[in-house]
Nucleic acid binder design. Structure first.
Lengths: 156, 156
DNA sequence: CGTAACCTTGACGTGGAGGTTAGGCTCCCC
DNA sequence: GGGGAGCCTAACCTCCACGTCAAGGTTACG
């Protein structure tokens, strides 16, 4: 096993791995973005690898999309639904209910997808703009350097 | 002339056009994101078309990049520098100084460009992920529908 | 001149996303 | 079994990006 992860992690380790503070982890838990972890006897939180992944996902959504945590919660919840459906899949539960949930999850992810697609487009526009601008800057710079040469030549 | 804009705008109009509140415009001014507009006799702010463009730019940066206003200020300042250089271009001012400013502006825009490029990349990744996920959702859904058919057949 | 619509500054409030501090408990190792 | 590192909750604080009055001045129109 490749350094097979101790199967559980305390909050400090999760914080180190994800680069957020312990406070932030507790805060996310409070806001429902992280499911309440199991605890040791004394009350210490016990996390698992999944939680690290989850936190990373939250951070990506936050940084990239710049959306509110409330909305991010919706998105990670959609994930959870899929996971659950998968888990109890062979449990032959109420198929209609599963379909309903899956439908709901799909809608949320489609919403997220729409946001991302739109942003990608807009950002590509912005990137093109910036390229143009940099080009113009470079041209100006070249012109200024030309002027400088003239001045030198004039004096020389 | 196509409805040639009254050449000046009061704060209310700017607010309407840009979709931000008057408060926000004053706030941006306070924070140096908008240059203090000229005023009428009585103190009413007088804006011009440029200001509308500026506000739109600020909003784009805010929504797309999700960065702090302080950083946005740096970016729009870079623009200002270019504008100034252009304006006094034939004024034959200190070329060395102009070069220095232009250099500075270029750096800021390059920074912005780097951010945008990185985000575009990451968001494209995210988009791909979401596409996969949607595909999996659809598959699950198909499976569930299969189960449903079986059940119906079994009963029938 | 009246008045309605628009604007001014100033001050305080708010919601989101955590940071910080206090006071105490737990875990683990020597 | 004692001590230090790590963790707990609770409460308060901060920063940002505005929102929301309040009290009053300005402008345009009839």
């Amino acid at each position: 096993m490749p350094e097979a992860s101790k199967a559980y992690l305390q909050i400090g380790e999760v914080a180190d791995r994800t680069g957020v503070t312990q406070r932030t982890l507790r805060f996310y838990e409070e806001k429902g973005l992280l499911k309440p972890p199991t605890r040791m006897e004394g009350g210490f939180r016990l996390y698992f690898e999944d939680d690290v992944v989850r936190v990373e996902q939250i951070r990506r959504l936050q940084n990239l999309l710049g959306i509110a945590l409330a909305e991010i919660k919706e998105m990670v919840d959609a994930d959870e639904v899929l996971r659950e459906i998968k888990a109890q899949y062979r449990h032959e539960a109420d198929v209609v209910e599963k379909k309903r949930q899956l439908q709901r999850a799909t809608e949320v992810v489609e919403k997220q997808y729409a946001i991302v697609r739109q942003k990608v487009e807009q950002m590509q526009e912005m990137r093109a703009d910036l390229e143009k601008r940099l080009k113009r800057f470079a041209e100006r710079m070249a012109e200024l350097e030309g002027l400088e040469q003239e001045a030198v030549a004039g004096r020389g």
